[in-house]
C-alpha cells in the first residue's frame, strides 16, 4: 500500500434507519415464482434470546454461475418522480437488504449460492451494535470450505441454514450467547 490512512471509525446504525436504508424488493434477490428460488428466513436475537426489531441485514453473494462481479439495478429509481422501484425482476444483482420486522423476523428470497462460493455473505447492523458484524449462511450440502473446516462442530452449526420445508431454509442470527448459541462472526483483517 502506498499510504496507510487511518480509517473512518464505525458508528451504530441507530434506531431510525427505516426510511433511509430499506428499499422496495430488497429481499427479492431472486424473482417471485422463479422455480429455482429458495427462501431463507429467521430471527435476529440478543443475548437474552429476545428478538431484535431494529436490525438490518445486507446480503451479498456470487451469481449462480460463480461470478463475483455483481450487477447494478438493485435499487432502480423512477426518473419521473424519484421513487425507488427496486429490481426489474430479470437481472441478478447479488445484493439484498432486509430490515427485521417488529418481531425480529427477516426473510430473503434468493438462489442457492454457487458450489465454488457456497454461502451468502451477511453484514449485520442494529441499534446497540457499534460496529457491524459479518457472518455467512451456508446452504445444506455446501462443500466444506476452509472456514467451516476450521470450526468445532457446535460453532460450525451456527453457520448452516436448516431445511424447514420445500425450498425454505431457517437461519437465526444470535448476536450474543455461549459457544453453541452465538453465531460465528468473521474478521477479514
Amino acid at each position: 500500500m502506498s499510504q496507510n490512512l487511518e480509517p473512518t471509525p464505525s458508528q451504530t446504525v441507530g434506531p431510525f434507519f427505516g426510511y433511509g436504508l430499506p428499499f422496495p424488493g430488497g429481499s427479492d434477490v431472486a424473482p417471485a415464482g422463479h422455480p429455482d428460488a429458495v427462501s431463507v428466513h429467521g430471527f435476529v436475537y440478543d443475548g437474552e434470546g429476545n428478538p431484535i426489531p431494529d436490525a438490518i441485514l445486507d446480503f451479498w453473494q456470487a451469481a449462480p454461475d460463480g461470478s463475483r462481479a455483481g450487477s447494478p439495478g438493485s435499487l432502480r429509481v423512477d426518473t419521473s418522480n424519484g421513487r425507488l422501484l427496486g429490481r426489474d425482476g430479470v437481472r441478478f444483482t447479488g445484493f439484498g437488504r432486509v430490515g427485521t420486522d417488529g418481531d425480529g423476523h427477516w426473510a430473503l428470497r434468493t438462489f442457492a449460492p454457487a458450489p465454488d462460493a457456497p454461502y451468502l455473505a451477511v453484514c449485520v447492523f442494529a441499534r446497540g451494535l457499534l460496529h457491524h458484524l459479518f457472518t455467512r449462511i451456508y446452504f445444506p450440502g455446501a462443500p466444506e470450505d476452509a472456514l467451516l473446516a476450521g470450526l468445532s462442530p457446535e460453532r460450525r452449526a451456527t453457520l448452516l441454514a436448516r431445511p424447514e420445508s420445500d425450498r425454505v431454509l431457517r437461519f437465526d442470527v444470535r448476536l450474543q450467547g455461549g459457544e453453541a448459541e452465538e453465531t460465528v462472526f468473521l474478521d477479514f483483517g
Binding site: 437474552e48 441499534r127 446497540g128 450474543q176 459457544e179 462472526f185 468473521l186 483483517g189
Partner: peptide, 11 residues
C-alpha cells in the same frame, strides 16, 4: 446484549 462474547473468526 448486542455484542458478541465469542472471539471473531479470522478469514
Amino acid at each position: 446484549l448486542r455484542h458478541p462474547r465469542q472471539a471473531l473468526t479470522v478469514v
